[in-house]
Amino acid sequence: MNSLHNIFQIKDNLRTKRISSYDKTGNNRDCIRIQGGETSEIAVIEGAGIIRHIWITLKTADPFIRRNAIIRMYWDGETHPSVEAPLGDFFGQGWGEEYNFISLPLAAAPMKGRALNSYFPMPFGDGAKITIENQSDSDIESFYFYVDYEVHPTISKSSGRFHAWWNRELTEVHPEEGETEWGIVAAQGENKTDAHNYLFADIEGKGHFIGINYFVDSPGPMWYGEGDDMWMVDGEPWPGSLHGTGTEDFFNSSWCPNEIYLHPYFGYARIPDKLGWMGRTHCYRFFLEDPIYFDKSLRASIEHGHDNALTLDLSTVAYWYQTEPHKIYPPLPGRGLRQNMPEVTVRDVHMWRHEWRKAMGGGKTLWGNERK
């Protein structure tokens, strides 16, 4: 990342350029239209350079466009994208929602998080291409964008290329005793493998991992974050070179937080306002001062509850740099498979209480914390 300590230095053989949606007729229609089902190439750059900044905002009738639109990036004439993610998730907004998000490399800025920004440097040696695929039934009526980049004489092949991958899983409860987080239902087991963890990076090549946006939707009020992060570098066995102590610890916080906190490198951009930790939480962490290096491969995952004891709707965007070629990503789940899980409502919780009351014998003054 650029830093202020050398901003005064004058550099040779560089030129700053921009590709934008400005109205080339000189009028004020400074946007493009992307029809439903259409893929638009918003930036095609020849030669060598570094993309320094991307800004996007849009208008459409589709309220779920941040999941229904896909951003892809290609470097050096490659066929398979190095970046592939739903538009909102890539810039740090989960579930197709609009909300403000602040970090050093990514931001969703006012009005109400509708201005999407990236400051990740993205080098390329022989061309770059950025596309937006509108998988919605609605047109994106107005799509505004800047792509600001530097023209360089050359960029070495040894320079890492920027990558980002979106994944999602409705996690299955692994222990036979069911959702027994904190030992509430039964004694908890020991997890001595990463086989059942939620996978957020599966990388082949040489490079370094630099960040993650982590979106968790919890259908129950239990704390979702007892899961440890686990990193297997260059094919090493469990427990790996880096092994965490809990989800909130991985995101540089503590003691089951449920509050908005926005640090340049880590934080909580969205939290639920329900019972306990029920609902949607967006955690993020960027390893800009402490990248995770790998020479051959990296498998990074996290438990969904200790010993993978919780059903959660988890989705992530992982960010890293590596030399090419990269491992081809699995096919992006179709639009129907990217929809949100239904919201658990007050009515649902009341029905849980009703079933619990029957299981307790139907007493007329049962409070809710009685146990057999």
Rank of each mutant, 00 (worst) to 15 (best):
N2Y: 05
N6I: 13
I7M: 15
I7Q: 10
K11M: 10
I19Q: 08
Y22V: 12
T25E: 03
A43P: 01
V44M: 06
G47S: 07
G49C: 09
R52E: 07
T60R: 01
T60P: 00
I71T: 01
R72A: 09
A85F: 05
P86R: 07
G94T: 02
W95E: 03
N100R: 06
I102Q: 09
L104P: 02
A109V: 07
P110I: 11
N117F: 05
A128T: 05
A128M: 09
K129P: 00
E133A: 15
Y144S: 06
E150H: 07
T154F: 14
E172H: 14
E176W: 04
T180E: 07
W182L: 14
W182D: 12
V185S: 07
A195N: 13
D217K: 11
G227E: 04
V233I: 13
G235C: 07
W238T: 05
W238L: 07
G240S: 09
G244T: 07
G246A: 08
T247W: 06
E248Y: 00
I260F: 03
F266A: 15
A269P: 01
W277Q: 10
R285P: 06
R285Q: 00
F286V: 14
Y293F: 15
F294Y: 09
S297V: 03
A300Y: 00
H304Y: 06
T311V: 10
D313E: 03
K327P: 02
P330V: 04
P333N: 15
G336E: 12
D348K: 09
H350P: 03
H350M: 13
H350L: 09
A359W: 00
G361E: 11
G361C: 11
L366F: 06
W367V: 13
E370I: 03
R371S: 12
